[in-house]
Structure formats: structure tokens, C-alpha cells
Amino acid sequence: MLKAFLLLFISLEVLLIIILYLYYQNQVIRLKNEIFLELKNYSYTLKGKDFKVDIVSNSPDIKFYQLYNSDKEFYIYVPIPSIKDEALKIIYPAEKVDKEISKIKKQVLIIYVMSTLIIAFVSIVFASYSLNPIRKSIQIIDNFVTELIHDINTPLSSILINLKILKKKYDDEEISRIETAAKQIGSLYENMLILSKEREKIQKEVDLKKLITEEVEVFKSNYPDIKIALYLEDKKIKADESALKRIISNLLMNAFKHNVKNGHIYITLTDDYLEIENSSRPIKNPDRLFERYYRESPRGLGLGLTIVKKLVDELGYRIMIKTTDNSFIVRLYFKKGGQSHPED
């Protein structure tokens, strides 16, 4: 909405400034014409107290009954009957010139302020109205997601249960791969579930080293060409296990999915933070990575990091993103306080 507002507001402001500039110039021309008529009328009778009269030497450069002006005054030259060497210089008072110019400027300023307020109001209304179709589209998507997750849960649960039964009968690598893929679908289901409703937050002690190792194993078999290095210290933390699992799963999914061929992932866990570094193509807009539905590539829904930010903020942690031309680093600080923010 801000971009739509600024686009219209700035465009109308530029147009307004141009119009007011032309209006100001027109008013100054009108003032000069009025002053000239007053000076000319005064020259016929020389009656009045507001004008100043001076006698100057006549010269070829002087043109009679033509308006001249300096910084603060306007004047005309008038011939003196029977005297060729001298002329009258009739001066319009400088105080009146300043007063009239000030009135014009004040009038222009009032018009500018009032017009700007009207433009701001119109821009807000237009921006709000123009974004209505987008809001409706997002609402339709959200409703679709809500309905979809209810339909996914039952068949997904059935697939996982039957895969466990098959694994007991047949120790087959292909079955394991299918199970891994089903778990990834389950991960997407959990993501959509978080967006569709409020979660029940249950605090318990979580073994982060174990949780990270288990989540890595879920993705490992589907990305055999990616080199994985783990540098994990023992770390237990009291938190919402479901939220932590979603955060770690989404960060790992992002690291695996948006990696390069024969790339790497380095995962470091210390007492203060979790860091995941992966090889990556250059990121175009690092400041938009947490936006809902924003994607740097056609792959994915643009929800993973949005959910990460939502959960990180709920837990009161901090998350930092750093990008280079060939790497993507995300660091999650467990110390409470602060807001999530991308950095490049």
C-alpha cells in the first residue's frame, strides 16, 4: 500500500508544483500589468502621494512608457514637454511591491498546503482501493490453504502408517525414500497448519543437537550430492518443541532446496546460536526474504522463511541473515529480545 500511495502522491505533487509555479508567474505578470497602468495613469496628472518622481538625464537607451523593474521597485520614464535632455522617472513604491509579492506567495502557499492535503487523502483512498483485488486474492489463497490442509492430513497419515508397515516387511531403500518424501509433505502440512490457526504452545526441554541431527537425516537421502558438515555442541533449551522443530526444518529445507549442484551445508550449534551456511546463487532481494509468498526462484511457495520469522518472534529469539555472491548464512540466536531482521 505504501508504494502505491507514494507513487500517486509524488506524481500529483510534482504536477501540483509545476501548476503552482506557472500560476505564480502568471500572477507576477498580472501584477506588473496593474503597476504599469497605475504608473501610466499617474504620469498624466502627477496627482497622488504613493508614487515617487525623479528627474533623470534623457538618453537613447530610455524608452518612454515602458515598465522597468529592479530588485524591489518598478518604474517608467515619461517625457517632459519642451525639454529633450531630461525625463521624469516615476517610481512605484518598493513597500507596495514587497507587499503585493508577499500576498501572491502567501496565496500560492495556502493553495499548495490545501492541495497537498487533498492529494494525500486521494492517494490513500486510491492506494487502499487499488490493493483490494490483491487483498481478496490473498484471502482466497489463505482460505484455499485452510481447506487444503484439512484434506491432506487423512491421506498423509494413512501413507505414513502403511510405509511403516511395509518397512517392517521389506527393508527396501526405495521405501525409505518414499517415507522421506512423505515426511517432507508432512513438513509442508505443518507449515500450512501454523499459518491457518493459532498453535498450542507447550514448553519443555528440547535437545537441540538431537533434533538437528534427526532433521538433517530427513533431507540427506534426497540430496546425495550436497556435502554436509555438522559442528554441534550439546545444547538443551526449554522452549516450544513444535516451534523449534518447524524453525529448524524450514531453515534446513531452504538450505537444501536452494543450494547449488555439488554444494555444501555447514551447520554449527553453540550455546548461544545455531548457524546454517549453504552454498547459494546470489540473492537479489535479501531484505524481502521474510515476506509472505516472496520467492527468489520458481521453486517453493515462499512461506518457509515467513513461518521461521513468525515463530522466532513468538519465541523472542533473534535471527540474522547474511548473503554473499556464493553463500547464504542464517544465524539463530537463542537469547531472548530483539526483532528478526535480514542483513546483507
Results as ranks from 00 to 15, higher is better:
residue 142 D to N: 11
residue 234 D to R: 02
residue 249 S to K: 00
residue 55 I to Q: 09
residue 131 L to E: 14
residue 232 L to M: 01
residue 200 E to V: 08
residue 254 N to G: 04
residue 217 E to S: 08
residue 108 V to N: 00
residue 208 L to N: 09
residue 27 Q to R: 11
residue 270 T to A: 05
residue 45 T to K: 05
residue 320 M to V: 13
residue 109 L to F: 15
residue 68 Y to I: 00
residue 303 L to G: 05
residue 220 K to P: 04
residue 317 Y to E: 01
residue 304 G to M: 06
residue 12 L to C: 14
residue 280 S to I: 04
residue 331 R to V: 13
residue 285 N to L: 05
residue 40 K to W: 12
residue 10 I to S: 12
residue 275 E to P: 01
residue 73 E to W: 00
residue 126 F to C: 01
residue 242 S to I: 06
residue 118 I to D: 06
residue 139 Q to N: 15
residue 132 N to D: 14
residue 110 I to P: 04
residue 62 I to P: 11
residue 159 I to C: 03
residue 317 Y to P: 02
residue 28 V to A: 08
residue 182 A to L: 05
residue 259 N to D: 06
residue 138 I to C: 08
residue 301 L to W: 13
residue 338 G to S: 08
residue 238 K to S: 13
residue 314 E to G: 08
residue 121 F to H: 05
residue 158 S to A: 14
residue 45 T to Q: 06
residue 11 S to G: 10
residue 143 N to R: 02
residue 118 I to F: 13
residue 163 L to I: 13
residue 115 S to V: 00
residue 8 L to T: 11
residue 137 S to P: 03
residue 88 L to K: 03
residue 270 T to L: 02
residue 56 V to G: 11
residue 74 F to Q: 05
residue 296 E to G: 11
residue 262 N to L: 10
residue 73 E to I: 04
residue 327 S to E: 08
residue 168 K to M: 14
residue 8 L to I: 14
residue 311 L to N: 10
residue 111 I to Q: 02
residue 238 K to W: 02
residue 66 Q to Y: 11
residue 310 K to I: 12
residue 341 H to K: 12
residue 286 P to D: 09
residue 26 N to R: 04
residue 152 I to S: 03
residue 102 S to H: 07
residue 49 K to W: 06
residue 128 S to M: 02
residue 180 T to K: 14
residue 224 P to I: 04
residue 259 N to Y: 02
residue 303 L to Y: 08
residue 18 I to A: 10
residue 247 I to L: 01
residue 256 F to Y: 14
residue 226 I to T: 07
residue 5 F to Q: 05
residue 139 Q to D: 15
residue 222 N to G: 14
residue 215 E to G: 01
residue 281 R to H: 15
residue 83 I to A: 03
residue 107 Q to F: 10
residue 265 I to Q: 06
residue 222 N to K: 08
residue 216 V to L: 01
residue 46 L to E: 09
residue 253 M to T: 11
residue 163 L to F: 07
residue 197 K to H: 10
residue 74 F to M: 05
residue 283 I to K: 10
residue 197 K to I: 03
residue 251 L to Y: 01
residue 299 R to S: 15
residue 215 E to I: 03
residue 2 L to D: 13
residue 157 S to E: 15
residue 308 V to A: 04
residue 184 Q to H: 15
residue 53 V to G: 09
residue 124 I to C: 12
residue 331 R to I: 12
residue 210 K to M: 14
residue 332 L to W: 00
residue 318 R to H: 08
residue 125 V to T: 13
residue 156 L to I: 09
residue 211 L to R: 07
residue 29 I to N: 04
residue 227 K to F: 13
residue 266 Y to G: 13
residue 338 G to M: 01
residue 82 S to K: 11
residue 158 S to I: 12
residue 299 R to M: 15
residue 148 L to I: 07
residue 198 E to H: 04
residue 50 D to I: 03
residue 152 I to W: 11
residue 211 L to Y: 08
residue 249 S to P: 00
residue 107 Q to V: 02
residue 150 H to P: 00
residue 45 T to C: 06
residue 197 K to Y: 05
residue 222 N to M: 14
residue 28 V to L: 12
residue 326 N to W: 00
residue 219 F to V: 02
residue 273 Y to E: 15
residue 264 H to C: 12
residue 44 Y to V: 09
residue 300 G to F: 10
residue 110 I to R: 00
residue 272 D to Y: 07
residue 45 T to A: 09
residue 214 E to R: 04
residue 50 D to M: 07
residue 162 N to K: 12
residue 164 K to L: 15
